[in-house]
Computed example of a mutant assay.
Amino acid sequence: MKFKIYYLLILLFPVSVNAATYVSGVSTTITRIDTHHYGKADGDVRISVSDSVPGCESGYFITADSQSIEKALSIALSAYHSGSKVVIGGQSGIQWDGTSRTDYCHVHSISLSK
């Protein structure tokens, strides 16, 4: 019997609703997870995936002050270590303090399936 487990996170820290555009993710694998320990991005988490979507080509980020960072990081680490597929929904148009690049998306939701 095949089980599918879906986790949906709604991160409650919208930076700018008017400038942000929701970007649906595609089924992909997480290739890298890291944290930043400097400046305004101190404690933020960056997630890189194997198959990106337009607007999120560099990957995704979760800000350290997000109320759901521990839950999102738990799901991301689980998917990374198991090699499971995820779908990450993001918000483009939000400038991340960890880089000058504009093609990172703020994580809006993560769905994990096995």
Rank of each mutant, 00 (worst) to 15 (best):
A19R: 15
T21D: 15
Y22T: 15
S24E: 03
V26C: 02
S27A: 06
S27Y: 01
S27K: 03
T28P: 01
T28H: 02
T28R: 02
T28S: 06
T29C: 02
I30T: 07
I30V: 13
T31Y: 08
I33M: 10
T35R: 14
T35L: 07
H37V: 10
Y38G: 04
Y38R: 06
A41Y: 03
D42K: 07
G43R: 03
D44L: 06
R46K: 10
S48K: 12
V49E: 00
S50K: 05
S50E: 02
D51C: 03
D51W: 01
S52P: 03
V53I: 12
P54L: 07
P54A: 12
G55A: 12
E57T: 09
E57G: 04
S58Y: 15
Y60R: 04
I62V: 15
T63N: 10
T63W: 01
D65R: 08
D65N: 13
S66G: 12
Q67T: 12
Q67Y: 12
Q67R: 12
S68M: 15
I69Y: 10
I69C: 07
I69G: 06
E70W: 13
E70S: 15
A72G: 15
L73Q: 04
I75N: 01
I75D: 01
A76L: 13
L77V: 14
L77M: 11
L77H: 07
S78T: 12
Y80P: 07
Y80N: 04
S82M: 10
S84D: 13
K85H: 02
K85Q: 01
K85N: 02
V86G: 00
V87Q: 03
I88Q: 04
G89I: 02
G90P: 00
G90T: 05
Q91H: 14
Q91I: 01
Q91W: 14
G93K: 10
G93H: 10
I94K: 07
Q95V: 08
Q95Y: 06
W96T: 05
D97W: 03
D97Y: 07
G98A: 05
G98V: 04
T99P: 00
T99G: 00
S100P: 07
R101V: 07
R101S: 13
D103P: 03
V107L: 08
V107T: 05
H108K: 13
S109M: 08
